[in-house]
Amino acid sequence: MNWEDAIPSIAIAEAARATEPAMDSDQFTAVYQRSAKPLWAYLARASGDPSLADDLMQESYVRFLCAGFPGDGEVASRMYLFRIASNLLRDHWRRPRTLPIEDLPPNRSAAPDTSAQTDSRLTLDPALAKLRPRDRQLLWLAHAENYSHREIAQITGLAVTSIRLLLFRARRQMAHLLKD
């Protein structure tokens, strides 16, 4: 019990005023239902890891709500979500890949599961799997989500000129892989 607990009403009232959400629950549900699947598809294909996509998608929506995005229309909200998700992906790729032994899955040393029960969501298309994650990300945004170079620059935080060059190289590599 701290002494500021004696005046909780003041702090909570302040907090309540500061936490007025930019959209109510129903509005959020509508945005979620329209954007969750494409966002998950982007995260799953760019990362190649459906479980990671599940986690990052949830975190993206929580951050989206906490940021209090005023929501200048559905398109802007959706682009903002993709931007948050891209930042989370980038943070994930930058993080060191050391796992403590307690966090390792129990069957890590076992033979890979070849049964038909394996999660079909885990399969990443061979051509996509051979690309670098950033190239997958850029190609997905450009060709699957149909974003322009300027929009991709806003989502990824890269310069428009860099996007043009990176997409050119990624496209060439992907076309080569698909033809093979």
Binding site: S25, F28, T29, H143
Partner: peptide, 28 residues
């Protein structure tokens, strides 16, 4: 490339299983 990625997108969307939005709403 666009045909390939649009097909990959449709497949990924078909297999997506997003959770309920209310949990995320209250967490936020």
């Amino acid at each position: 490339i666009t045909t390939y990625l649009q097909q990959a997108r449709s497949a990924a969307i078909a297999s997506a299983q997003p959770g309920t939005p209310s949990v995320l709403w209250w967490r936020a």
